[in-house]
Design a protein around this nucleic acid. Sequence first.
DNA 1: GCTTTAAAGCAAAGGATTTGCGTTAGCAAC
DNA 2: GTTGCTAACGCAAATCCTTTGCTTTAAAGC
Lengths: 186, 186
Amino acid sequence: MATRQAVRTGGRSARVQQAVHEAVRDLLAERDRADLTVPLVAARAGVTPSTVYRRWGDLQELLADVALEHMRPDGPPADLGNLRDDLATWAEEWLEEMSSPTGRAFTRDVVAGDDDGRSTGQCCAYTSSNIQVILTRSAGRGEDVPTLDAVLDHVVAPMTYRILFMSDSLAPGYGRALVDTLLGSR
Amino acid sequence: MATRQAVRTGGRSARVQQAVHEAVRDLLAERDRADLTVPLVAARAGVTPSTVYRRWGDLQELLADVALEHMRPDGPPADLGNLRDDLATWAEEWLEEMSSPTGRAFTRDVVAGDDDGRSTGQCCAYTSSNIQVILTRSAGRGEDVPTLDAVLDHVVAPMTYRILFMSDSLAPGYGRALVDTLLGSR
DNA sequence: GCTTTAAAGCAAAGGATTTGCGTTAGCAAC
DNA sequence: GTTGCTAACGCAAATCCTTTGCTTTAAAGC
């Protein structure tokens, strides 16, 4: 009797999730985000609105879910042979993606649709995982390596803060400058 | 003929704004934020919902507006006679306010209800203004003073990032530690 | 005062959201 | 592969939120 019922992850559920995510991506590409609604997304996905409401709760949480999808690392960060270049290159690429209007909107969606700290936590975990790869690799070379927290505090946090709160104050080279400050700019 | 019509700032408009803000504050104190709605707020404020919709657009923007109200500086930061203590004290107080569940919710509201960068910009302006007071005062004493940007990048940004993305990783003393790192911790 | 008109009220129309119930189709055990 | 169980979906009615056209009220300037 006490066989705990498994959450269904494959088959129809997976197809619905995929169709809904794709519908959101398509609609975001062709319409203004302000006139996106759950019924609209559902219709595009070939699904009833109530399905979306029951699975995601509301539009914000759905958007947060889709945004997280875009942020998932698609491969290990580039290896340029030394810590400084690895970090700086990663930071510049991250900044390039995240500071575009689309990127900023994703970050906002993750924060806005964050019921219990799950989506922001996952977002941070993706970032941390990339950085940790760089740090571990560097330590393997025998370099002096900052802590993950130091990189989060002094590279990721400033970039994120400026994207969210000072969106017009972002110049190219900012990511590299932050890395130089962290590592000592000699 | 070309007398540009003034926006109405006093009288009834002011009373409505005050009543609506107060209604939001009261309701946030006694109910879960998830079941806050515009009609509910309007009823409490003794106003029709359409008035709220026309002035604020939607609930998110109204919440952002109320959150900003809470963030407005209520006085100049404390003067302890030296830059390090002034900054550290300010940072610790700011962190104490902002890292509470209520404080975090306000920060989220400001980001979520940010149509055009106005509310996040204002939020950042309040913070910057406080910091600038500290820096200017310190420069007047002849101390060596970091730039406003450096304080935003290495003190405010890390605190904000952790509040939004890593809400469980905040220990007391974190604000002071960031200031020590920025100023050199001898 | 008097005029002008921004902002508020009212109410109907249009959508979004919720919810109960029947149906479909994963998953596990046999 | 067949069967039993039930999570997840579809459907539709009911509810509630949101928008909008029009009317009324009351700031602001003369």
